[in-house]
Design a binder for these strands. Structure first.
Lengths: 234, 234
DNA sequence: ACCCTTCTATAGTGATCGATATCTAAGTCA
DNA sequence: TGACTTAGATATCGATCACTATAGAAGGGT
């Protein structure tokens, strides 16, 4: 996904006259607003201030451009899964995922909803590969959370009756659903209360107290400073 | 939405050579699979076994055809909201909504996911009205559940601390999210367990026992017989 | 039988889709 | 400065989009 030539100091030939990074950001916002298929090359080039040949030369094609915006949006999917696995408890990881989603879906300077969630639904036959790619991202994140939950069960932090598959599935169902609600106009406060509601169903910890475990509700923790250059969640 | 002439016994002129009802069912399945925008007139006419002029004569245009399939899918939205308001308790209504959704999203003879949820996301500028129509359907159902919850609070069945807006929002976030999970291959058992997880967060009833209130979990209640001619949920 | 109405099929409307061939402008190197 | 390399702009590609004008086919009413 990285340009080869951009690493070399002196490029021969005419240098690019637009900023690739800011153009990518514009494209991300467009995809974020309308989804993958509903965003046309014409819209993209107009908003990015470049012509179609420049877009194709710089980003490959529409598909690659979209996947690159997704990668930028996620801040690297590994960052998300790593955050889940590194959380103090599985419950913290779940709450963190949900809260990040609620905040990310209602940013002031970003379109409502989730870039990935907005594009994962639409499924014309030609975009089946895009859909599968996005589904894979969600599955990897869900798997990370599931593994984290199972670890807590093994360590006795969560009761043995805790169903990791169910809990992780529920979390990502809520993440996905909050994106739609945000697109329909739900504000940040409502989403954060939904996060609290979603976390109410978690089994109580049974083990010893965990250092650094955060038991505060999402609505108490609106202290996040969010920008759209690095987006840690979907 | 009903044809005027179909009510009169003897129609002058050549009668329609295809079954309107079964053609509508085919169209519903296509929209259900790919969403509103990703389903083309060419796909529709081919699958329905008719030509474009016949489609437009019988159903108006693509938009009206889709809205008619949605109406058929919901079995009339009033049926859903009435079911919510008539439930024994708000908690029963919520569980019923979630269970119906989990079952409807994983029917054996129907596409995975939800017809409405699959089309509510994709939002090209030209389909903004469709999107708003679907969002209105969701909002009306959510409002019905919210009213039902507030009634239980007033009657002392739910504690005064119960947040109706939050609880209703959470339910429909899960409904929406389950549709995506189903499209990604989640099976019925997983969705039903997610329903149980979602209902775990509900506040405990504080009032006297309600006759007919059902406290069973969704996974115990897989006894539903589902067909796709009447679809009570999204 | 005829007329009249409606349906169906062929074909094609302009618009837009993603993607490019071609040519010119604008730079870096020797 | 001249040779080389790449970016940008114009124009357009074939395919597909939702939709329809036209004309022939097929039935009911009398």
């Amino acid at each position: 996904m990285q340009e080869v030539g951009s690493l070399t100091a002196g490029r021969i030939g005419r240098p690019r006259s637009f900023d690739r990074e800011s153009a990518l950001k514009v494209a991300m916002h467009l995809f974020w607003n309308h989804g993958y298929e509903a965003t046309s090359i014409a819209e993209l080039t107009q908003a990015m201030g470049i012509t179609p040949p420049s877009l194709y030369a710089a980003f490959g094609d529409k598909r690659q451009l979209f996947l690159e915006t997704v990668d930028r949006y996620m801040g690297g999917i590994d960052a998300v899964t790593k955050g889940v696995l590194d959380a103090a408890t599985a419950q913290d990881a779940a709450r963190e995922l949900l809260t990040s989603a609620a905040l990310g879906h209602t940013g002031e300077d970003t379109p409502p909803g989730c870039l990935v969630a907005s594009s994962i639904i639409s499924s014309s036959v030609s975009a089946a590969d895009i859909r599968e790619e996005l589904a894979g991202i969600r599955r990897r994140m869900e798997a990370a959370l599931r593994v984290r939950i199972e670890r807590d069960v093994l360590e006795g932090i969560l009761p043995a009756s805790a169903d990791a598959d169910m809990l992780a599935g529920h979390v990502f169902a809520v993440v996905q659903g909050m994106s739609t609600l945000a697109k329909d106009g739900a504000d940040r406060a409502k989403l954060l209360r939904i996060v609290d509601c979603a976390m109410n169903g978690w089994p109580s910890p049974v083990g010893p107290r965990i250092d650094g475990a955060d038991e505060g509700t999402a609505t108490e923790r609106t202290k996040y400073a969010y920008d759209d250059t690095r987006r840690p969640s979907r």
